[in-house]
Amino acid sequence: MTRKRASRAKQTHKAINFPPSPLDENLTDATVRGFAEDIQISNFIESACTVCGLLAYKSDMSPLADANIDSTLLIPDVPVTRAERQATTDPIRPLLGPVLLPGCDDICKTCLEELSEGKLPPDSLANGLWIGEVPPVLQDLSWTEKMLISRVKHNICTVKVHVSGMSKMKANVVSHSLPMPKIYHALPPPRDDLDEVLAFMYIGPNVPTHKEFKRTPMLVRRNKVKEALEWLKLNHEDYADLEISYENLDAYPEDEPPVVVNYTMSMATNKDSEATAVNDTEEDEGVEDGDCPFVVHGLTGTYLEHLGKVRPYEITARAVEHFKSQDVPLAVPVWVWWT
Score class of each variant (00 low, 15 high):
R5D: 11
R8H: 11
T12H: 08
K14T: 13
K14M: 08
A15N: 11
P22C: 02
P22N: 07
P22H: 08
E25L: 14
L27V: 14
F35T: 11
A36R: 10
D38R: 15
I39R: 10
E46V: 09
C52L: 07
L55D: 09
L55A: 12
S62T: 15
P63W: 08
L74T: 01
P76R: 01
V80R: 02
V80D: 07
V80F: 04
A83E: 09
E84Y: 02
E84I: 08
Q86K: 10
T89R: 06
I92T: 06
G97M: 07
V99G: 05
L100K: 03
P102N: 08
G103S: 10
C104V: 09
D105K: 05
D105A: 09
D105S: 14
K109Y: 08
C111L: 01
E114G: 05
L115Y: 07
S116A: 13
P122R: 02
A126L: 07
I131P: 03
G132R: 02
L138P: 03
D140M: 08
L141C: 05
S167F: 11
I183M: 13
Y184V: 03
A186V: 11
P190L: 05
L194I: 11
D195V: 07
D195W: 00
E196V: 09
A199G: 10
G204K: 03
V207I: 12
V207L: 13
H210I: 01
E212F: 01
E212V: 00
F213V: 00
R215N: 04
T216F: 05
L219Y: 00
R221C: 11
N223S: 14
E230C: 04
L232H: 00
E237R: 08
D241E: 15
L242N: 04
I244Y: 09
Y246N: 10
P253D: 10
P257Q: 00
V260E: 14
T264L: 11
N270H: 02
N270L: 04
D272A: 10
E274V: 12
N279K: 02
T281M: 13
E282M: 10
D284T: 05
E288V: 11
C292V: 13
P293M: 02
V296D: 03
L299N: 12
L299W: 00
T300G: 10
T302Q: 00
L304Y: 06
R318P: 04
S325F: 02
P329E: 04
L330K: 06
V334R: 09
W337V: 00
